[in-house]
Computed example of a mutant assay.
Amino acid sequence: MKKPLVLLASASFALVLSGCGGTVSDGNQAANTGSPQTIEAAHTSSAKAADPSSSRSFFKDGVLTTSDLKIEITDHKIIPSGKKGNEYGSKPVIAFWYNITNLTDKDVDRDVSPMDFIFAITAYQDNNPNAENKLEVGGLPDDKFLDSQTENIKKGRTVTNAIAFELDDTKTPVDLVASNDLGMTEIGKITYKLK
């Protein structure tokens, strides 16, 4: 009786792991730009040298650079629930617009798409005294990227995209934490203070 359950659990775990490498697409994405509230542009940054393999990676002044890609945050706004760019969300979001550049050596070496932001940068709000509060990805805040957000970027080329994270409140600052190993080793952190 226990052996079939162990085999079933192992097979399920293998399926979950095999799904981790795919492209993420959200079918419930909002498809509009916002009339957002502004947030304080002042942010702080910190960078950590984690290990020799990430010594070429850094996250400072809104720019994440790794051996594979460069992400430059160009704008950020709070969009309240129900407003343009967040029509279908039940929470306000903090939206980021960014440029992403493919820095790989070959076009086929590693696929780089605008959606790589979610694999390289995680958003947090430190408003829970007992647990880490990772923010969920919200709907796409800018409909002009609806068809292009999953396209592969050619070697040495740059494209623009946007992403939103659902806020738990509109007062607690948002920390963007960058890594090049799915959040296991922090490259650096930038804090965005909300007004």
Rank of each mutant, 00 (worst) to 15 (best):
11 A>H: 06
147 D>A: 12
99 N>M: 02
170 T>W: 03
23 T>G: 09
37 Q>G: 04
163 I>F: 08
143 D>Q: 03
182 L>M: 09
161 N>K: 03
120 A>R: 14
175 D>M: 13
25 S>Q: 09
153 I>W: 00
144 K>L: 07
174 V>K: 00
192 Y>M: 09
153 I>F: 01
48 K>W: 12
26 D>P: 09
153 I>Y: 01
134 K>M: 12
142 D>F: 07
170 T>D: 08
190 I>M: 14
28 N>I: 14
160 T>I: 08
122 T>M: 04
101 T>Q: 00
96 F>L: 02
179 S>F: 01
4 P>Q: 07
103 L>K: 11
47 A>S: 13
155 K>M: 09
165 F>Y: 14
28 N>W: 15
114 P>V: 05
149 Q>R: 15
104 T>E: 10
15 L>S: 06
140 L>R: 01
35 S>V: 06
120 A>E: 08
40 E>L: 07
173 P>F: 03
161 N>R: 02
75 D>M: 08
135 L>Y: 08
51 D>C: 11
122 T>S: 12
20 C>L: 13
56 R>W: 03
155 K>E: 10
18 S>P: 02
97 W>D: 15
25 S>C: 07
164 A>W: 00
98 Y>C: 00
104 T>P: 02
19 G>M: 14
79 I>R: 00
181 D>Y: 04
83 K>T: 07
150 T>P: 02
114 P>A: 10
180 N>E: 10
129 P>A: 05
70 K>G: 01
194 L>A: 12
107 D>N: 14
40 E>F: 11
13 F>R: 13
148 S>G: 03
10 S>Q: 03
141 P>T: 08
121 I>Q: 13
163 I>T: 02
99 N>K: 12
29 Q>P: 11
10 S>Y: 00
128 N>H: 13
127 N>S: 14
41 A>E: 05
34 G>K: 07
84 K>H: 05
134 K>Y: 02
187 I>E: 03
153 I>M: 05
